[in-house]
Design a protein around this nucleic acid. Structure first.
Length: 574
DNA sequence: GGAACTAGCGCG
DNA sequence: AAAGCGCGCTAGTTCC
């Protein structure tokens, strides 16, 4: 914390009074009050603008109830999320105290989703699946975390990461509260265009039924099952298509009249089951899709989501994302985030030069390392994922020659992982340790009693782990860049003036519906929902924050993060 | 009849 | 039989 920081530690179980403990910048307790839950939101609102940081057990536990009352907070520290970072970080010199606080080891995915704040509080406390929420526990954990961070190397990088992670948790709660504007009529039109009319009394939609009849005719079996892979494989064998699986990449390799309609049927079946009318009924209410975002739900620090498949919305349906009347979107994504981050981490000026301007892959071609953009892309992905065979594996050595620093960084990360050690992202998030099972397999293979099968399995497991750690440092650092971007966008949008009540978007909620706010985030892309009059300002903020995120992580190193950005009322991809 | 698993495919 | 990372979700299948 900076010296002028004031922290209020918030604590209390659901349904009882809430303790507010004021701390000085050095962590000593200044004062303490106990307030009824009904006064909590008012207290928080009153503290806006005082540079307070709210320290609490779990943003998903505390923040939804504030948002429901129309109250935003400027900054917080999410003890649950920061605990996980500091507990595992290789930068922390003395991790023993924080590791001993096992009650804070709460897997993000076990935190229940808030249907409504009241229900959520009940669910959490009844199931006792969250971290402790009382004042003594929170104060002790905060002290442990400050000590752990103070013992860490890395010039404050972990402090930066904890701040960014906590800001992300605020964004996640706010985006759920605001929701993503979703036009049900447009979605239904897309479904009908693709699938045909919605069946009145069950059964498949019209176009799927016609396709199914055609396919069954070609299979020579009016009863053929198209939805069961084993049965479909047997049906295909009977007409001379020797497919082993029903995966589309394999089916696509056979020449037979049944293949084309079958692939089309599978595409439609997927759309129907994943995002059909049932999805719409379940997940879109009052013009908003409100998924549950799970910050750091992925080991690398990326977010996960729960319910509604928020991070897998098919491109086809993006046309259903429509701004409210008088509002618009700023849709922005970063071009080639991961290789840019790799250039920054490794200090590879040659790769940074290739990245300058806009298209990094074209820049690689211009440098002469490979001949085409497609080659540059597959080679770079192969380098970051650990490809060893095929076209990708063949091209990676060309990148090694052209960008030795960058390639050495990922190659070293892979070697460390193969040896069973951990790797860390730029800001210090550290990969999980090798499992006991993995270590045992390596010991057995290395020992005199190990069989050829043991050795083969161990080598494969080592390779798998090496590809994981290779990718971890890049994917994880990209996630950190994105958090920095997101967090700064949030703060700066919040500083824009609110619009008059008659121009507000009430469906986005009392806390956020009167001003530009984040509405969606997906790894390297965000959508801001904004009153039209603030669209240009919001777009500039999104651009400026990409630049400042780059500086926050990589200082003066000359790597830029260009955006594909557009201002539009329909958020199909930028 | 339900839990646990797999196949397949959507997203980055 | 995906080559090469990270996910979530649905339907079908297998096992208890």
């Amino acid at each position: 914390m900076t010296p002028d920081d004031v922290a209020w530690v918030v604590a209390g179980a659901a349904g009882v009074d809430i303790d507010l403990v004021r701390l000085a910048a050095d962590g000593t307790e200044v004062s303490r009050v106990r307030v009824p839950t009904g006064e909590f939101a008012g207290r928080v609102q009153a503290a806006r603008g005082t540079r307070v940081r709210w320290v609490w057990s779990d943003t998903a536990h505390w923040y939804p109830r504030l948002l429901a009352e129309g109250v935003r907070v400027e900054r917080c520290r999410d003890l649950r999320l920061c605990h996980a970072i500091l507990r595992d970080s290789a930068l922390v010199a003395d991790a023993a105290p924080i590791r001993s606080a096992r009650e804070w080891d709460v897997d993000a995915t076990t935190v229940p989703a808030p249907e409504a704040p009241a229900l959520f509080a009940l669910a959490t406390d009844a199931a006792a699946s969250g971290p402790p929420h009382d004042a003594a526990s929170a104060l002790a954990e905060f002290a442990r975390q400050r000590a752990a961070a103070a013992s860490a190397g890395g010039n404050g990088r972990l402090d930066l990461l904890c701040a960014a992670e906590s800001a992300g948790a605020l964004v996640a709660a706010e985006m759920r509260a605001a929701g993503l504007p979703w036009d049900v009529a447009v979605h239904e039109r897309i479904l009908e265009d693709a699938l045909g009319a919605r069946p009145a009394g069950g059964g498949p939609p019209e176009r799927m039924a016609i396709l199914a009849a055609e396919i069954r005719g070609l299979l020579g079996d009016p009863q053929a099952s198209l939805d069961s892979p084993p049965k479909l494989v047997r049906s295909l064998h009977r007409i001379g298509v020797p497919a082993r699986t029903t995966a589309k990449w394999e089916l696509g390799q056979y020449e037979h009249p049944v293949i084309a309609p079958l692939l089309e049927y599978k595409r439609l079946a997927r759309l129907l089951s994943a995002n059909g009318w049932a999805w719409l009924d379940e997940w879109v209410h009052e013009g908003r899709f409100r998924p549950v975002y799970i910050p750091a739900g992925v080991v690398t620090g990326r977010w996960a989501s729960s319910g509604g498949g928020a991070l897998q919305i098919p491109r086809l349906l993006r046309a259903a994302v429509r701004a409210d009347p008088g509002w618009t979107f700023v849709v922005a994504d970063v071009a080639q985030l991961e290789p840019r981050v790799l250039a920054g981490m490794s200090g590879d000026t040659a790769l940074a030069r290739a990245a300058r301007g806009h298209d990094l892959y074209s820049g690689i071609v211009d440098s002469g390392a490979v001949a085409t953009r497609a080659e540059a892309k597959v080679a770079m992905l192969g380098a970051m994922y650990g490809a060893t065979t095929g076209e990708s594996g063949r091209l990676v050595p060309r990148l090694r020659r052209a960008y030795p620093r960058a390639m050495r960084l990922v190659d070293d990360a892979a070697r460390v992982g193969e040896e069973g050690d951990v790797v860390s992202t730029w800001l210090g998030r550290t990969s999980p340790r090798a499992s006991e099972r993995w270590l045992r397999a390596q010991r057995v293979a290395a020992g005199e009693t190990g069989s050829a099968v043991d050795r083969d399995q161990a080598r494969r497991a080592a390779g798998d782990r090496g590809r994981f750690t290779r990718n971890f440092i890049v994917q994880g650092t990209a996630a950190e860049w994105a958090l920095a971007w997101l967090g700064e966008v949030r703060v700066r949008l919040d500083a824009l003036p609110p619009v008059p009540a008659e121009e507000a978007a009430p469906r986005s909620g009392a806390a956020l519906g009167d001003r530009p706010h984040l509405a969606f985030f997906l790894h390297d892309e965000l959508i801001v929902h904004t009153p039209a009059r603030h669209a240009d300002a919001a777009a500039q903020i999104v651009r400026d924050c990409a630049a400042s995120a780059g500086r926050l992580l990589f200082g003066d190193f000359p790597i830029d993060f260009p955006l594909d950005l557009k201002v539009t009322t329909m958020a199909d991809k930028a």
